[in-house]
Structures are given as structure tokens and as C-alpha cells.
Simulated scan of single mutants.
Amino acid sequence: MNNSAQKPGLRERKRRETLQRITDTGLKLFLSQGYEETTLDAIAEASGISRRTFFYYFKSKEEILLAWQSGTGAAIAAAIQEQTADKAPIDAVLDAILSLASQFDANELVAIERLLRSTEELRASKHAKYVQQEGAVFEALCAKWPQARRRDSLRLIAMASMGALRLAVDRWVEEGTKRPLAKHLRETFESLKAELGRQS
């Protein structure tokens, strides 16, 4: 088999690198200057691209934050694939999220979460992206446990897990990160599993 057919070409790699550079630059400017105060021209200049090139990748600066969220969903899905199939699916999701949470800077993550809540438009878009993340988790679970009879239960686990993630992050931010995010995640998932056990 030709391995070159499986690897992204030079043009695609450059496109991904530019996309990531704009996203990272935009986030840094949002956090240092404020979302409303950061202009598209400032993002383009700091990213080393033209305004026209910016619009090739993003239609608005809001999409930079949403791209970060989309990347989170893909990262959770990839981490689920690294889990062993002898775990319960809900534990595989939790362990995947915990492994990712340990890689983030807590202060930066809180700042981004607050940015996503700063306007009505961003809040609405944030909720829509959670649905996409749920879909990514569901697909990852189905790939790990491909039996057709399990699809409905795996979809429920994906939905409930993303709800538990949202609740854990909300509590963590509201408490001012006094306790580690991992503690909130474990508590929320344990509550979820306990409630599911009562319904069985």
C-alpha cells in the first residue's frame, strides 16, 4: 500500500499549520486584550497573514473560539480510542476526558470558558458545539464497541457524558477553580453512574 496516499500532502499540512496558528494567536489576543477589543486585523497581523487570508480560514473571530471547541471534541474522541475495550464505555469517556484535562493550563481554560460565556452569540454557539462534541464521542464509542445492538445505549452514554462534562466545567469555573477540574469530573460522573444504577 502506498503510504503517501494516507499522509496529508504538503499543501494540506501547511493549511492545517496556518489554521492552528491563527487559532492559537486569536486565543492569546482574546485572553490578553479581551474578545470585543481584539480586531480581525490584529489577529491577521499577529498571525503573519493578510486580512484576505484570514477570511479564507474563518468568517469571523467568533469562529476561532468555535474551532478551539471543535478541536476539543476531536481530541476526546481520539483519547477514547486509546482506552481499553474492557472498560465500561462511560469509564472510557471519563478517563479520556481526564487525560486531556491534565494537559490544559487551568487559568487559560477558565479564561476561555468565560470568553465563551461573554456574549449571547458565543453562548449559543457554544451550546451548538457541545452537540457536535457529543456526536464525535458517539462515533468514537461505536468504533470501540461496534456491536449494532449497543448503538442506542452508546448514544445515551455520549449524551449523558457530555452533560456531565458541562456540569463539571460549570461548577469548576463558578467555584473559581478552588478544586482541580479532575475532582469535579470524577464527582459528576460518579453521580451520573449512581443515578443510572438506580434506574436499572
Rank of each mutant, 00 (worst) to 15 (best):
I112L: 14
L192E: 14
G135M: 09
E45F: 06
A74M: 06
G71L: 11
A85M: 10
S50I: 02
G135E: 10
A96R: 12
T25W: 06
E175D: 15
D170I: 05
G26Y: 04
E174R: 11
D152C: 05
S161C: 10
S70H: 13
A194M: 13
L154H: 02
L98Q: 08
L109S: 03
L167Y: 04
A106F: 01
C142G: 01
L29V: 01
F138Y: 15
E190M: 09
N107I: 00
A194Q: 13
K193W: 01
D170G: 01
Y56Q: 06
D95N: 15
L165R: 11
A160C: 06
T177Y: 05
K59G: 07
H184T: 05
A124T: 12
P8S: 05
L98D: 02
E121G: 00
C142Q: 11
N107V: 02
K193V: 11
R151C: 02
G48Y: 07
E187Y: 04
R16P: 01
K87L: 15
Q69I: 10
F30T: 08
R149Q: 14
A128S: 07
E108W: 04
G163Y: 05
V137F: 06
W145E: 08
L115Y: 02
L122H: 07
K129V: 03
E63W: 03
E45N: 11
T84E: 15
S161N: 07
R51Q: 02
G71I: 10
N2R: 09
A78W: 00
L156H: 08
T188H: 04
R13V: 08
L10V: 11
R151W: 01
A128G: 01
A124N: 12
A85D: 15
T18S: 10
R186A: 08
K129Y: 14
Q199Y: 09
H184W: 10
E36P: 02
S50C: 09
M162W: 01
V169P: 03
T38C: 04
K14R: 14
Q147K: 11
F54L: 06
S50V: 04
D105Q: 08
W68A: 12
A148G: 00
T39N: 07
S60E: 14
G73F: 07
I90P: 01
A74F: 01
G26K: 03
S118M: 09
K7A: 07
G71W: 05
R117P: 00
G176L: 05
F189R: 14
E187A: 15
L100G: 06
R179T: 10
A85R: 10
F54K: 01
V173T: 12
G71R: 08
A67Q: 15
G197M: 03
E113P: 00
D24C: 01
E82V: 06
A79W: 07
D91W: 06
A136T: 06
N2G: 07
D41Q: 11
L122D: 06
A168P: 12
P146C: 07
K7S: 06
T25L: 09
P8R: 04
R16F: 12
R155E: 15
S200I: 14
E82S: 11
E37G: 00
Q69V: 09
T18L: 09
